[in-house]
């Protein structure tokens, strides 16, 4: 009952929880190396799609590096844009789900409840960031990859929608540790797999409610913008503009 009340308040007052998990993507630092993509796969038990499925456009990536070319040959530049679920405050994917598989947690996360999902895929259509990925078949991992599944993360069956969770399992662990020690989560306690693996520190994660956190500083440093901001989805991911062209 307590939790339900919390959820109701979550609507009226967006941040019912003391935490507000946000991410900052510094485009000036991103080299497009895709280490984050790989780390995400390993951490989150994302199925291995293989060459054939990838060619069909079915490779599942919770985070992807979009590559846009600018200029005319030979004077071209590759621009990289890491895109993951933006954990929008007003997420278009949430209300369209007929079975509440997609909903908003009081901490501002956009949650996907795998075992409620029946695969109508409306959320996928309605996500302007194409962050949502669908399991077209049951998952499989080539040996020996099947030996390295993360026990903290559900393996999703075929017919289920999935997407970036901000590594919710790590957020849980971080919060539980902090709770045990009777303190707030400190900046840097929690690092999602992509953030951990980024060699240039282009990805920064933290609690935006903590004014001292790096996320809170960076998102207000004047370079910040949101992806497709005009849609009013209020994403939790802030991108930082490139410094030089």
């Amino acid at each position: 009952m307590n939790q339900e009340n919390q959820a109701v308040e979550g609507y009226s007052k967006k941040a019912a929880s003391p935490y507000k998990w946000e991410m900052v993507v510094d485009l000036d630092r991103c080299t497009g190396c895709e280490a984050c993509v790989l780390a995400c796969h390993a951490e989150n038990n994302i199925r291995i799609s293989g060459e054939e499925e990838a060619a069909q456009g079915r490779a599942i990536n919770w985070i992807r590096i979009e590559r846009y070319w600018e200029g005319e040959y030979p004077d071209v530049k590759a621009k990289f844009l890491p895109v993951m679920c933006q954990h929008c405050d007003d997420a278009p994917c949430e209300p369209v789900c007929p079975v509440y598989a997609s909903y908003h947690t009081p901490e501002g996360l956009n949650a996907q409840v795998y075992n409620r999902c029946i695969g109508v895929r409306y959320c996928g259509n309605n996500c302007p960031y194409v962050a949502r990925q669908f399991n077209w078949f049951d998952p499989h991992w080539d040996e020996p990859l099947a030996e390295q599944l993360n026990p903290d993360v559900t393996v999703r069956s075929g017919g289920v929608m999935e997407k970036c969770t901000f590594c919710v399992q790590r957020i849980r662990t971080g919060k539980e540790t902090a709770e045990k020690e009777g303190r707030r989560v400190k900046d840097g306690d929690i690092t999602p797999a992509c953030v951990q693996s980024c060699p240039t520190s282009a990805l920064i994660f933290g609690d935006a409610n903590d004014p001292e956190s790096r996320v809170a500083h960076l998102k207000n440093n004047g370079r910040g913008f949101h992806l497709l901001e005009s849609l009013g989805t209020h994403p939790s991911v802030t991108y930082l503009r490139r410094l030089s062209e």
């Binding site: 979550g10 609507y11 007003d90 908003h104």
Partner: peptide
């Protein structure tokens, strides 16, 4: 009966 917030829309 089971209020869940979705998309910032009213319950």
């Amino acid at each position: 009966l089971y209020p869940l917030v979705t998309g910032g829309k009213p319950i």
